[in-house]
Design a protein around this nucleic acid. Structure first.
Lengths: 194, 194, 194, 194
DNA sequence: AATGAATGAGACTTCATTCAT
DNA sequence: TATGAATGAAGTCTCATTCAT
C-alpha cells in the first residue's frame, strides 16, 4: 500500500500471482517465485513468514481494487441499471480473457485451507454479491427488470452464470469470451426481463 | 486384506477419489491414499506406476458410467425434450450436492498437466455437449424451444450455467442446490423459451 | 546341468546373464529378468531364493565350460607351448569381442560382496592361473621361453595383460581386439623370449 | 557444522569418493554419504541436484590434478624418457595400492550412463594417452626405444598393461603392486626395447 | 533489508521378496 | 512347478523454512 516500502515485496507479490496462476499453488514453489522476483529466499521469508502469507498478500492487494470497481458500478446503477450491468459484464469478459486471472482463480480451489484466505475470498464474494444486488435492485425500481424474485436471488443467479463463464474460460480454450458477449447479454436479458 | 484379485485396485481408486476431492491432488499423498485404502505402498505402485496414473484410473472408471447416463438421456429426449432436460438438471443438482464430486472437479484444475487426463476430460466435456445438443435439438423440433440460435450454441450456454452451479456448490457452502431447483429451472426455461 | 530340469531355470540364467552384462547387477532388476525370461516373479524365486543366487547360478553354469577349456589347453601345451598360448590368446580376443562377456565381467566388480561369488571368482582365477602356468612351464621345458622367472610369475603377468585387454575392450569402444591380435602376440613374445 | 562456504560441498565430495569406492555407486546411498560428510540431505541436494551430479563433481575435482601430473611428466620426458616412464610407473603403482582409487575406478564401470561422466572419463583417458605418447615419442627420438611401431601404438599397449595392473589390484588382494615394481619395469623394458 | 547455505520432514517411487492359489 | 498380487524397507529427491552474516 505504501509505495516505498519494499520494492522486493511488490516483486514477490507480482511473481507469486503469475506463477500461481500458471502452475497452481503447489507448483509455484517459493524457489521459483524468488527466482522470478529476482530475490533471495531470505527476502521472501522476510516479507512473508509462510508461503500462504503470500497468498493472503496477493488477495489483499486485489481487494482494494475490487472495492473501487464496486463503488463505480453502484454509481453507474443510479443512472441506468442496464448500463451498469453491461459494464459489469464487460469487466467479467475482460477478466475471463486474462489468462492469469482465470488461472489464479482456478488455483485457489486447490490451495490449502486457511482462515484468512477464506475470509478474503468470502469478502470478495460478498462484495460482488452486494454490487450485483444493488444494480439489480436499481433496475427493478426503474422498472427495467422483473420483480417476482428479490434482487438478492436474481443477483445470486447472475453470479452463478458469471462463475460458469469464468470456469469455462479456464477449462475450454476454444471458448472465446469476447465473441460470446452478445449471447451472454441475451441470456441475462431474458433472465431479468419482467 | 484384499480377498480377491482387483479388490486392492478398486479400494485404491475409491480412496484416491475421496482424498483428492477432500485435499486436492497435491494434498492427497500416496501414503494417505494407501492408508485409507488399507493397502501398502507397494500395492499402490503395483497397479498405478505413477500417482497420475491413479487419476487416469479414476477418470476412466467414471467414463463408462457417464456414457450410459448420456445414452439414457438421449432416449428420454426422443419422447419429450423438456422431461429429458429436467432429468439432466436433476442429475446435475444431485452431483453438485455430493461433496466429493464437486471437490474432485475443483481439484482437477490443479492437477499436473497430463495428456491422458486432458484427453479424458475433453472426452467427458464433448460427451456432455453432445448429449445436451441432442436434447435441445429434439426440443426445437418438437417446437418447445427457440430456434433463433443453433442447438449447439444453446447447449454451450446451458453447460456454462451448469459449470456455474457446480463451482458455486464448491465455493459457497450456503448455496443449497436442491432448494434452488425451481429457480434454476426457471432460468433455463426463460433462456430456451421460443 | 540336467537338461530336463527347468526350462524356466535356464531361461532365467540366460536372461540374467544378458541383462547383468547390459545394465550391471543393480540395473538388472528381478522384474526385468523375469520379463526377458518370459517367467513370473514367483518362478524366479522358486529357483533362486535370492537375487544373488542367480549370480551364483550364472557363474556355476560357466565354470564347467571353463574347466573343459583349461583341460584342452593343457593337452595342447604338451605338444607345443607356443601353439597353446596362441590358442589361449585367440580365446581371450574372442571373449573380449563379445559384448556380453566383457560387460558381465565389468558388472561383477560392482556386485555385492558374497562368499560364494567370491569363491567362484577365485576358482576361475586360479583355474586360469594354473592353465597359464602349465602352458608356460611346458614352454620353458621345451626351451622356447625364458627361465629367469618362475612359470608362476610369468603366468601372473600374462594374466595381468589379459585383464588389461578385457577392461580396455569394455571402456574403449574404439579398441579393436581382433585387429590387435598381432601386436598383442608381439608383446607376449617379447615378454617370454629367453 | 560447516564453518565456511563450500566446506559442506568439499565434505560431500570427499565422502562420496570414499563410499563409492568402498560400496560401489549403487551401494553408496545419498543417506550414507550425507552421514559420513556430516551434512543433511538438504545440503547434499543443494550442491548436487542429482546423485550423478556428485559423480561428475568428483571426477571434475580430480581432473585438474591429473592435468598437472601430466604436465610434470611431459617436462621430465624432455630430459630423460626412461626416467619419466619410471615416474609414471611409480605413480601407477602408488595409485593401485590406494584402495580407494582402485575401488573407485572399478565402481565407475557400474555407474549409470551419463554424458558428462563419459565425457570426463574420455578426457582422462585421452590425457593419459597423450602423456604416454609424449614420453614414448621422446624415448624414441633419444634412441632409447624401438621405432618399428608408432609411439601411439606403443602407448596404447603400455596403457593396456596399466589397466591390467589396476584391475588385478582390485580383484586379487594377494597381488602386491609395490613388490611387483621391478617385474613390471622388466615387462615394459622388454616391450619397448629396440 | 538482504543474502543464501543449511536443514529435515516427507513426497514419490523402486525393488527384492513372500505367499495363497 | 508356476503364478502374480501384495508387501514394506529403503532410495532419491523436493521444498518450505531457519539463521548466521
Amino acid at each position: 500500500m505504501a509505495a516505498r516500502t519494499g520494492e522486493g515485496r511488490a516483486a514477490i507479490v507480482g511473481a507469486g500471482y503469475q506463477l500461481i496462476s500458471e502452475l497452481g499453488y503447489a507448483g509455484a514453489t517459493t524457489a521459483r517465485i524468488c527466482a522470478r522476483a529476482g530475490v533471495s529466499s531470505g527476502t521472501f521469508f522476510h516479507y512473508f513468514p509462510t508461503k500462504i502469507d503470500l497468498l493472503v498478500g496477493i488477495l489483499q492487494a486485489d481487494s482494494a481494487d475490487a472495492a473501487l470497481r464496486a463503488d463505480a458500478l453502484a454509481d453507474a446503477a443510479a443512472d441506468s441499471a442496464p448500463t451498469a450491468l453491461r459494464d459489469w459484464l464487460d469487466a467479467l469478459l475482460e477478466e475471463s480473457a486474462d489468462p492469469h486471472l482465470a488461472g489464479f482463480v482456478a488455483a485457489l480451489g486447490a490451495a490449502p485451507t486457511d482462515a484468512r484466505v477464506e475470509g478474503l475470498l468470502a469478502d470478495a464474494a460478498s462484495l460482488q454479491h452486494r454490487a450485483l444486488t444493488a444494480i439489480i435492485s436499481a433496475g427493478q425500481e426503474q422498472g427495467d427488470w422483473r420483480s417476482d424474485l428479490t434482487a438478492e436471488r436474481l443477483a445470486l443467479w447472475v453470479a452463478v452464470v458469471a462463475d460458469g463463464v469464468l470456469s469455462r474460460s479456464v477449462e475450454d480454450p476454444s471458448f472465446d469470451a469476447a465473441a460470446a458477449a452478445s449471447e451472454l447479454g441475451d441470456l441475462l436479458a431474458r433472465y431479468l426481463a419482467p
